[in-house]
């Protein structure tokens, strides 16, 4: 699965797609693959504020549980309610239908210290080689 060029990526395998002052946040294809079949997502409440690297959601597979870290500071404006009924959307389409939340960026400069697609692809393939 190709990683979208317009996204920015974290070392903890989250992505953010910035659109003006808003960003759509989700887990990368690598993250969903490592977790396996996702069975549950604990979504943040709309209106909650996060600093960069705060835990904003928890995803669970049958035998693993993983915290998701905010790629940038912001306030939650929307969460993907579809994940409540069908958490497998993260497995099927992590970069699209499987998005987790949209935030209003409080410090857009946060995004500058994230990886671009080329750097992330390299990072991801090195992370993968340990397995």
């Amino acid at each position: 699965m190709a990683y979208p060029k317009e996204f920015k990526y974290t070392k903890t395998h989250e992505y953010i797609k910035v659109d003006g002052m808003q960003g759509t946040v989700g887990l990368t294809n690598y993250a969903q693959h490592e977790l396996g079949d996702i069975v549950f997502v604990e979504l943040p409440p709309v209106g909650k504020e996060f600093k960069q690297n705060d835990v904003f959601a928890v995803v669970e597979s049958v035998k693993a549980v993983s915290d998701c870290y905010a790629p940038a500071a912001g306030k939650v404006v929307k969460v993907n309610e579809k994940l409540v009924e069908d958490p497998s959307l993260i497995n099927k389409d992590p970069h699209g239908e499987g998005w987790i939340m949209v935030i209003e960026l409080t410090n857009p400069a946060d995004v500058n210290n994230l990886m671009d697609v080329a750097t992330y692809e390299k990072f991801e393939s090195e992370a993968g080689s340990h397995h």
């Binding site: 549950f40 669970e60 597979s61 049958v62 035998k63 693993a64 549980v65």
Partner: peptide, 9 residues
């Protein structure tokens, strides 16, 4: 729902 439990979390 074993992810709630001590052997995983």
């Amino acid at each position: 729902l074993q992810t709630r439990e001590q052997h995983i979390r």
